[in-house]
Design a protein around this nucleic acid. Structure first.
Length: 653
RNA sequence: GCCGGAUUAGCUCAGUGGUAGAGCAGUUGAUUUGUAAUCAUCAGGUCGCGAGUUCGACUCUCGCAUCCGGCUCCA
């Protein structure tokens, strides 16, 4: 979340709802102070789903049990109908108020200066108006704007409490953050809470268990997805879908193993520079034994793994035209230790396939695709169901092309992502062009190459015909990228599809092709993944469909339900006909009543239910019920099979 | 990794220091049923793991693991 200062102009454009929520943050602060007068407040903005206020409260940790108390106090303050008053002060006055502990307080607090407010004042640009807002006894440094009276702030609810860092900076003191939400009317607040309930029902972790799509097992490890048979069908169907599209677009399928030598990732630049987000290196037993014999300690083993040889350093620095590997990473050859890395990306392997033969400009672009599984060491607190995991499979591909082909290829990738999202009915997304942050040194490569690549991305995004935003600092370390950020039902955003232009890796791996001029040229690489990862995409997809998958994706597409034992024989025939047509069909002949069988099928979210009774058996017909559309009436068996087969083939929603 | 909360049967959850309970799912049987729950029967637990306090711990304390909500991070 950006903690950048809003300009006063931007402030003035706050929507009515944001203004209300911002005022609610002040009311909440007032309530907290009445209960704990020593609280020091830092920063309390409105956010998309409500508001929060960060504060330091050393003598008490807020827990959900406190919510009721605080809410009651907030309601009281709303009832008191305090007026929000703006007070313009000079910088000196503001500082004096903060020194006395008056800012973000109900009274002056000797010996307890408003430390965060002091810091915030120092960040206000010279010449900008400094204002405070007062409601009742509460006085806070604040640029506003606010609602008129606290009575507007009565439809509030505290949502959760968590830790945060002052200004989002991990090195700054840790604060408590209390989240709340607020609406103009009670009805809107209740609606919002209902939406949250609805979102809980769609949670892919809950549905994943209920529909037996995947399992995460403690003994296997955190963040590692076990795809159970139902989930495997879902994934396989999605992979088939992508593969069909790739064939149309001239991709070639490849397969590569899950590990590669450390040297490969030193060349690519992943190791050791990104080692904190990788699994540890795998070192051969014999190497380790040699190391142990030489009395080499743990720290030294790491040193030897991470270092490179002098020859490698000078080659790489020369090739990339800048100092990418410093002297501190260099060891004499004899001291180097090699090992393997679980692959954090597929590109180095694909690069080696491209480079395994001499390439002519006539074969470009070379498009290599693989459902490649990669492993990344995500922080434990970041793991979340299928959407944030430690091992995942990207629907990855790398395109090697000439510079002239970049724009067309990027566009091809973008339209592929668009096709994918459209086919699945995911219309709520935005496109983000991630550019480099001009102030950061984390990027590799020359500025001229970056300029070219960024221009290519911008141009392609513009041609796509979808609104997009340019965001500095969102680039990959090796090049700019275009991300498709899909919004889920709760309003959370997920980065799924991504297309990245890369001028760096071809340099680092010294890739070339022979041009029409019979000279060697450097190809450009494009990385792309329409789904991003199968895990995250399926997680989002489960919530998108709330578990009600369209027939082509559903693990069980149709279930045959018998009214009584008398129809078992025909039901078996129907079941056989569905199977013969290649449909995933189930058969329920247990002795439950038809109502119970329908209920079970509904709960399993089977798209089509075929009710078979004596009437149907006599007519060789099926009574069709759809899980969302309800009873669709009776039709001939052959007719149904043809229609469902067609629906599945076309991947209809 | 950090802050807070949670962890009891496959699932959802009761159980405030005296050796564990419900519903659903599962088993077995009866029933032969017409668009969201037929009845009965049986089985199922080292109360996340490890220490400590206590005559006695699911219950109190401390550690650890995992999950949840955030923070930070996300090539």
């Amino acid at each position: 979340m950006s903690q950048e200062r809003k300009t006063l102009d931007e402030r003035a454009q706050m929507s009515d709802l944001e203004r209300l929520r911002h005022s609610c943050a002040h009311v909440m602060a007032t309530a907290i102070l009445r209960l704990w007068p020593n609280a020091q407040f830092a920063y309390g903005p409105p956010i998309e789903t409500g508001f929060y206020y960060d504060f330091d409260l050393p003598d008490h940790r807020i827990t959900p049990e406190d919510f009721e108390k605080i809410e009651a106090e907030m309601k009281k303050i709303a009832k008191e109908n305090q007026k929000f008053e703006k007070v313009v002060v000079s910088r000196e006055e503001a500082q004096a108020l903060a020194e006395s502990g008056r800012l973000g307080g109900l009274t002056e607090r000797a010996g307890n200066p408003s430390q965060f407010k002091l810091d915030l004042i120092s960040k206000i640009p010279e010449g900008e108006e400094i204002s405070c807002y007062r409601n009742g006894d509460f006085l806070d440094l604040c640029a506003g704007p606010h609602v008129g009276y606290t009575s507007k702030c009565k439809n509030v609810k505290l949502m959760s409490v968590s830790a945060s860092f002052y200004l989002g900076d991990e090195t700054k003191p840790q604060l408590q953050r209390l989240y709340g939400t607020a609406f103009p009317s009670k009805e809107e607040l209740e609606q919002h809470l209902e939406r949250l309930e609805e979102a809980k029902k769609r949670d892919h972790r809950k549905l994943g268990r209920e529909l037996q799509l995947f399992h995460i097992d403690e003994d296997v490890g955190q963040g590692l997805i076990l795809w159970t048979p139902n989930g495997a069908i879902l994934r396989q169907e999605l992979q088939n879908f992508i593969s069909d599209e790739l064939r149309k677009q001239g991709y070639q399928q490849v397969f590569t193993p899950h590990i590669g030598k450390l040297g490969l990732y030193k060349t690519s630049g992943h190791f050791p520079y990104y080692k904190e987000s990788q699994f540890g290196a795998i070192v051969e037993n014999e190497e380790m034994a040699r190391c142990a014999e030489a009395g080499c300690g743990c720290a030294e083993v790491m040193e030897r793994l991470e270092a490179v040889s002098a020859k490698f350093r000078s080659e790489m620095n020369e090739r990339t035209g800048k100092e990418v590997i410093g002297e501190d990473r260099v060891l004499p050859d004899a001291d180097l230790l090699d090992g393997f890395l679980l692959k954090p990306m597929n590109c180095p392997h694909h690069i080696k396939i491209f480079d395994s033969q001499k390439r002519s400009y006539r074969e470009l672009p070379v498009r290599l695709a693989e459902f490649g599984t990669v492993y990344r060491w995500e922080q434990s607190g970041e793991l979340n169901g299928m959407t944030r995991v430690r091992g995942f499979t990207q629907d990855d591909a790398h395109l090697f092309c000439t510079e002239d082909q970049v724009a067309d290829e990027v566009l091809g990738c973008l339209s592929l992502v668009k096709t994918v999202l459209n086919t699945l009915g995911m219309q709520d997304y935005r496109v983000r062009v991630g550019l480099r942050d001009p102030d950061s040194s984390k990027y590799t490569g020359l500025p001229e190459q970056w300029d070219k690549a960024e221009a290519a991305c911008r141009a392609a995004a513009a041609t796509l015909g979808v609104a997009f935003t340019e965001e500095p600092g969102e680039a990959a370390f090796y090049g700019p990228k275009i991300d498709f950020v899909v919004k889920d039902v709760i309003g959370r955003e997920w980065q799924l599809g991504t297309v990245q232009v890369d001028y760096q890796l071809p340099v680092r791996f010294d890739l070339s092709y022979i041009g029409a001029d019979n000279k060697a040229h450097r190809p450009v690489m494009i990385h792309r993944a329409p789904f991003g990862s199968m895990e995250r995409f399926c997680g989002v997809l489960i919530e998108h469909f709330a578990g009600h998958f369209p027939a082509w994706l559903a693990p069980e597409q149709v279930r045959v339900l018998t009214v009584s034992e008398k129809s078992d024989e025909f039901a078996a025939e129907v079941h056989g006909a569905l199977k013969a047509a290649g449909l995933r069909a189930g058969l329920d002949t247990v002795s439950d009543k038809i109502g119970a069988k329908i209920r079970n099928a509904q709960l399993d979210k089977i798209p089509y239910m075929l009710v078979i009774g004596e009437k149907e058996a006599a007519e060789r017909a099926v009574a069709v019920r759809h899980s969302r559309k309800g009873n669709l009436g009776v039709q001939p068996l052959d007719n149904f099979v043809t229609e469902l087969t067609e629906e599945v083939r076309e991947r209809r929603l």
